[in-house]
Design a protein around this nucleic acid. Structure first.
Lengths: 261, 261
DNA sequence: AATGAAGTTCCGTACAACGCAATAGCTGTG
DNA sequence: CACAGCTATTGCGTTGTACGGAACTTCATT
């Protein structure tokens, strides 16, 4: 099915409201491009974001002059280095960033499992540092990716420290969806779970996001006690259970606590 | 002096040629914002990029809907998490990224000095990983920043492996400027220097970019022998000389070589 | 209260961004 | 080798839209 572009089109009232259409389109191109791991041709890229190739060409031209995209020898497009420069600047403003990698490395070394550090960003967990464990099986999320808060140990650890109203807001913005048979989707179960997290001092994602993967996380607090991020380890559910969830939980909680100070 | 904005204005013929004005302006806002380490108000930001506040507001609105910027409670602007997500995607496509941090960490641990990994990007060195040494004195560049190739050990190490024509192109695009009394600015000196780098197997930035700072670097090659990046250590010139430039050079070259394989 | 600065909304206009169509390059195929 | 099919690029006329000015609202400072 090919949707024909109409200049007057626009339609979708909820989408592009407010801003400048050309800019929104250009950003969509940039985001689309970032999901590719190899160069993409103009037409292909334009089709993905439902733009006329001519329009996409001009938008990409702007992105190119500012080095947000780069054109390869065969005229295909890849992300440009400016994206990394700006992204790095974002990280510098995340309070826990400077030590996030160290923290993840330490925990990965001491547990042998993959360790992650993330922050809460608009109802979702944004991973900012990953350290792969010895027996890594490639189940960890990459730095820079995001996942819903309600089905990750990081998210639950942070939400457990927030006022109920904030949590409700988060869950309203990003309503839980059943990703695995074990995903907690109703508010009651989730709030009960958060109570448990507070009591234990650590959160568990028991195959709630990915079948077979179990994560244990704890919140990192600032000097005022407010949660600024969280720390977790993840691994195959069977191996994690062998090692003992409670023990891993204490380990993560201890690391997070030490780091908070 | 306040420059009044005229819609017809535009003027500067070399600047915005080709692309879409609104997009270029929005990207300039984003880049400007990335140079701040605290929230900026609309008017302040608009003034910096020489835009009418109304115009900036709408452009920022687009950036906000796509989460490239975020508005704080007091309506000031900071970078949004999308910048980091896209920037991370850029890194994933840099071949040496996945191991760059490890490599830097190792070298920093073994030498005690700050280690950096960078790639050549449009005539400049883009730093993609930094590991601070034990006695760090805060002279290293942050990841995500860039510096000219001709006055860094990373840049010289990479250029030494490139065909003369490519080097000439790089130097033409980004003509050398005297940053310190020791900076090499003329083509002849630079090409002679690159010959020396090839012979020794490592490059030295002897206070050519920052007075008092000395760096030693070596290129990282892919399986075909082409340089894909470089590795360096940096420290106060006096201490580096005490440790012995030649020895440090061999150390860096060995690490880079081992990693290339 | 008055002043000033910053943020936001509204609006008419001009022009810049748009989509179309046509051209040019490239690849593979009958 | 011509031809068809695809992609990238250029030129162009139209109109929709991005623009800046002015007015209004907050909010902070005097």
């Amino acid at each position: 099915m090919t949707v024909v572009q109409r200049q007057t089109g626009q339609a979708s009232p909820a989408e592009g409201q407010g801003g400048v259409r050309a800019v929104t389109r250009a950003l969509d191109l940039l985001i689309e491009l970032s999901s590719w791991d190899r160069p993409v041709g103009l037409t292909e890229l334009a089709r993905r974001v439902d733009l006329h190739p001519t329009t996409a060409l001009r938008l990409l031209e702007s992105l190119r002059t500012r080095r947000f995209v780069h054109q390869t020898a065969d005229r295909s497009y890849v992300l440009g280095s400016q994206t990394f420069e700006v992204g790095s600047a974002f990280l510098r403003n995340v309070s826990i960033w400077s030590q996030a990698n160290q923290l993840a490395d330490q925990l990965a070394a001491s547990t042998g499992e993959t360790a992650s550090v993330g922050v809460l960003d608009g109802g979702q967990i944004l991973y900012i540092a990953i350290a792969r464990g010895q027996h890594d099986v490639g189940i960890a999320s990459a730095a820079g990716t995001r996942h819903p808060a309600y089905c990750t140990s990081l998210g639950k650890a942070i939400m457990a420290e927030l006022p109920a109203e904030s949590v409700a807001q988060i869950l309203r913005d990003d309503p839980p969806v059943r990703l695995t048979p074990k995903t907690l989707v109703d508010m009651d179960s989730l709030f009960r779970e958060l109570g448990l997290v507070r009591k234990r001092g650590y959160a568990v994602d028991n195959e709630e996001r990915t079948p077979g993967v179990l994560c244990v996380g704890a919140a990192i607090r600032d000097h005022q006690g407010k949660p600024v991020g969280a720390l977790s380890i993840s691994g195959p559910a069977t191996r994690m259970r062998e090692k003992g969830i409670a023990e891993l939980g204490r380990s993560v909680a201890t690391s997070a606590q030490a780091f908070s100070a």
